[in-house]
Design a protein around this nucleic acid. Structure first.
Lengths: 218, 218
DNA sequence: TATTTAAATGAGTGATTACTCACTTTACTT
DNA sequence: AAGTAAAGTGAGTAATCACTCATTTAAATA
């Protein structure tokens, strides 16, 4: 289950690594809930404190500002969401086992991130909302995704193109299509219609089929 | 050019149809700008008034509350964005001209909504942000899209499936994949990276290719 | 032109906001 | 047990918020 640490560990290690106070954890938990429910700008520190069962001043003992609280939550989450994609077992088959490489590549990545999204739906919502307005989050996205994950994917895609299992589109376009499809699925599944009856396994397979044939070569 | 009225006309007709005061138009224009820049919750009526060159009280003469201002802008936009999809010339070829029907269907719809998004990028951003938190917008989406457009698309899809030009996935899944791909493209093109060098024609063709082959039958 | 109606104004209001700080309580060290 | 440092508190504060309303200005009507 715990291939990846849970996000409160990640948040902890991201700041001082000295461990979180119980009240601090309550604050984080309440903040995630309320940010996701009402949006960051509409959330008040007094409400967060109330739900956390904590005095309002306690929040500001641990986080200089409300924005600091937001970033302390969201930045580690973004890192957690993306860095597993760097693990080489995701791209191994691409180079070792054509022609099934592409399908294995997609399957592993998508199923893996699907579980992570399920466990962290509120955080996913907060990121998608706030990245539109917080320059610090945009910068973090660039440094983590564009500079780390993107190049790694490019190498895998170039290999797949040479094998003929992926069409000769620009890598930017291919990655955009994959991400649009996956994020669209995750958003629908966990944010827009989480209460619908979902056949997760089948829906995942269909999504993978869609990408594979949409980008299939030859 | 004007197959569709511009959105200020739509906003006007949506409320009283008696025409917009010059100052009222300035208010709407400023509100769209500021809502898109900072998000609805972080936008103040005083700033909107200042940018519109209008007294703050003037806003409340025309709109009872700040939320009323938001809805007066966004609701007509959502309608404008979706109702053209009901025009029957979008689905005509599906029934009249197989097997090119599917491609023509996609091409027309996507290119049409592409231009609309280009002309209304800030509004697109506001909708995508606020639909997550405003129940009134969610209700409007349901009544306009789910109850009108969705059934129409279902009929076209069923026909395409019978022709064998679309794979036998549930219609919900197919529509989700198409919308994810298109919205992902529009968001990347006009909101995330509008300053990049885009080969719009080619990128549109690639996007259509992706969907067509991803969902192709047989 | 006189009169009515609508549009626009901006100072004012109570509520809420993020944040501070002097102080108390708890935990750790010796 | 005494002493020190960290964690937690909550009343207080200045700023900002959405919104009101008595009054002025402009437009329409007669």
């Amino acid at each position: 289950m715990s291939e990846f640490k849970d996000i409160y560990n990640a948040i902890n290690e991201a700041q001082d690594g000295k461990g979180l106070t119980p009240k601090q954890e309550q604050i984080l938990k309440a903040a995630v809930e309320i940010f996701a429910e009402k949006g960051y700008a509409s959330s008040s520190t007094s409400e967060i404190a109330a739900r956390a069962g904590v005095a309002e001043g306690t929040i500001f003992r641990h986080y200089k500002t409300k924005k600091d609280l937001l970033l302390s939550i969201v930045t580690p989450f973004m890192t957690q969401f993306t860095v597993p994609l760097l693990a080489s077992h995701f791209t191994k088959e691409v180079f070792d086992e054509p022609p099934e490489g592409f399908e294995q590549f997609l399957k592993k990545i998508i199923k893996n991130r699907f579980e992570f999204a399920r466990e962290n739906a509120p955080l996913l919502k907060i990121v998608l909302q706030e990245i539109a307005f917080q320059p610090e989050l945009q910068a973090h996205y660039e440094s983590v995704f564009l500079e780390e994950v993107f190049p790694k994917f490019e190498r895998a895609l170039n290999e797949l193109k040479e094998q003929g299992s992926v069409i000769d589109f620009p890598n930017r376009s291919i990655i955009r299509m994959i991400i649009s499809t996956v994020v669209g699925f995750l958003v629908t599944r966990f944010l827009l219609a989480p209460e619908s009856d979902w056949e997760d396994e089948e829906e995942l397979d269909r999504t993978i089929h869609f990408i594979m044939y949409g980008l299939g070569g030859k």
